[in-house]
Design a binder for these strands. Structure first.
Lengths: 137, 137
DNA sequence: TAACTGTATTAATATATTTAGTACAGTTAT
DNA sequence: ATAACTGTACTAAATATATTAATACAGTTA
């Protein structure tokens, strides 16, 4: 399904969370799509099922997936509801990154281009079927 | 000098690096300003000097400060030179944050406003004495 | 019932972080 | 030269965090 860096200083479960988030955000994993079970994915990645569960649990807390005992874990594309706390976090992180980028000499134009590029990438992978979140106005 | 969250899962030295970076980026700490010595800051924050040194060393590697044996550690505002690796890192992190923000429903307009706001903050705290990195052309 | 699924718990292990203590070398002022 | 500061290096111990392992329980599906 994807690659992990077992030698990284970044914990495996965090890598999993980040990776799965990106797949969900970019619609590679579609709404209600079933994720591999904790045991199957653990075997595929040659790591312990508990580590997978820790990642899935975190993703569920953050609202990216939902899990049903006996059935499995599924992608949650509803979102947009009570994500205010998450939005605040992301915005704070963005501010830090932006000021650091500016400090390192990245121009405002380049930063704006980054936004446009990211937006385009999303439109392409999502087939542009829902553009409400990227309206300008 | 600042606050730390000793209960955070984020290592103390990483908090220190982030915090000092922000102070340097936003020019709260000015060029060639002397930072507290590892021992003094350690006592102020009630943590071990080795932890301070680890943070200072990381900041020196990243080019934010420079240290002179016997004299102290000082803010480095020259930068802009060989920061290509750092720029690449920040850009990748920015992409992730932007796509997550878009996914959570933050509009492109809002993201662009974040850039403008951050730019303004920097101009104000820096007295606008050097605007070369924020030209739009 | 058998074979899946998520979830929980405990213990052991591995890794990372922090502390503690000591030491050495360069700077500054006396 | 001495005293008091500075950064830096090193080892060992203690603490915190992450990961594995093994087991168990409950819900789902065929």
């Amino acid at each position: 399904m994807f690659e992990l860096d077992l030698r990284s200083r970044k914990p495996i479960y965090e890598q999993l969370v980040d990776r799965l988030k990106q797949l969900i955000i970019n619609n590679v994993l579609e709404k209600d799509e079933k994720l591999p079970s904790v045991r199957v994915l653990a075997q595929q990645l040659s790591i312990n099922p508990n580590t997978i569960q820790k990642a899935y649990r975190e993703l569920e807390i953050q609202g990216y997936i939902y899990s049903v005992k006996g059935k499995g874990s599924f992608v949650n594309h509803i979102m947009m509801a009570d994500s205010s706390a998450e939005i605040k976090k992301v915005k704070e992180q963005l501010k830090k990154n932006i000021s650091e980028a500016l400090f390192l000499g990245v121009s405002v134009e380049e930063l704006e281009k980054l936004i446009t590029e990211t937006e385009v990438d999303r439109s392409v992978t999502r087939g542009d079927e829902d553009d409400s979140s990227s309206e300008r106005g």
